[in-house]
Nucleic acid binder design. Structure first.
Lengths: 122, 122
DNA sequence: ACAATACATCGACCAATGTCAATCTAAGGA
DNA sequence: TCCTTAGATTGACATTGGTCGATGTATTGT
């Protein structure tokens, strides 16, 4: 078997060989597209006002809050709060339900936990 | 007992009364300072390049990677990668160790999981 | 001592983001 | 019908953030 080659210990199938300074791999890294998607989700969450909005919503027994709950507790203008709500809806963390004059925002079940899970696995 | 008052069901001790449109609370929301701190951590993570850096580092068997591992895999200039590394070190997700000519970056154990845990509890 | 290499820092630039005042829209109440 | 209220949208503005070229700083090899 003169063609048999002993691979360096740092080689893992499908992973390109590393530089001299590099150490062995235990697994492959996250795919660029996955990193993009996760970054988009995290970006939607990485604002103090938006985190407080999510927290206020999920603090309600029915996981639903109206905008007045938010304007009461956040020291931000109404348009700014409305902007943050839009960001969270677009990112898939909240849903909007209009009933009469009021808008109610609900937490999308599992959306936060999903991001937390993916993050912990990065 | 003419002084006894029946509190509305929406009242929870220490929580200010809600508007007419509001629903009952199950707990209190996150404190503003905690939201600030969590937002800072998440902001450090909410970039595709930085997520990939963390992933590449933790993909190594010893949870350590040199900068050349990163410049190989990320299509970004060396100063840009250096910038992202600084952000992650400042945020407490990575530590730097210089050995000879090379800089090695390691994952701070538990830092990612901690953020994920706090996030899931928001 | 000198050249080369690895990486950090600096300065500049453009894009993205958070904020608010002003305005618009729709739903209720008089 | 008209006024009021709740909340979304628009436009402008200042700030932050990602990127790179140029430069600085150690460290290694000759």
């Amino acid at each position: 078997m003169t063609f048999t080659q002993i691979l360096p210990l740092t080689d893992i199938s499908g992973v390109s060989p590393a530089d001299a300074c590099s150490s062995p791999l235990a697994r492959t890294a996250i795919a660029p597209e996955s990193a993009d998607a996760l970054a988009r989700s995290l970006k939607a969450l990485s604002d103090p006002a938006r985190l407080r909005i999510i927290s206020i919503v999920s603090a309600h027994a029915d996981q639903e809050a109206c905008v007045c709950d938010l304007t009461d507790q956040l020291t931000l203008s109404q348009p700014t709060i409305s902007h943050h709500l839009k960001v969270l809806v677009d990112a898939g963390f909240l849903t909007r339900a209009k009933r009469g004059t009021w808008s109610y925002y609900s937490l999308v079940p599992g959306s936060l936990g999903s991001v937390a899970g993916v993050l912990a696995a990065v």
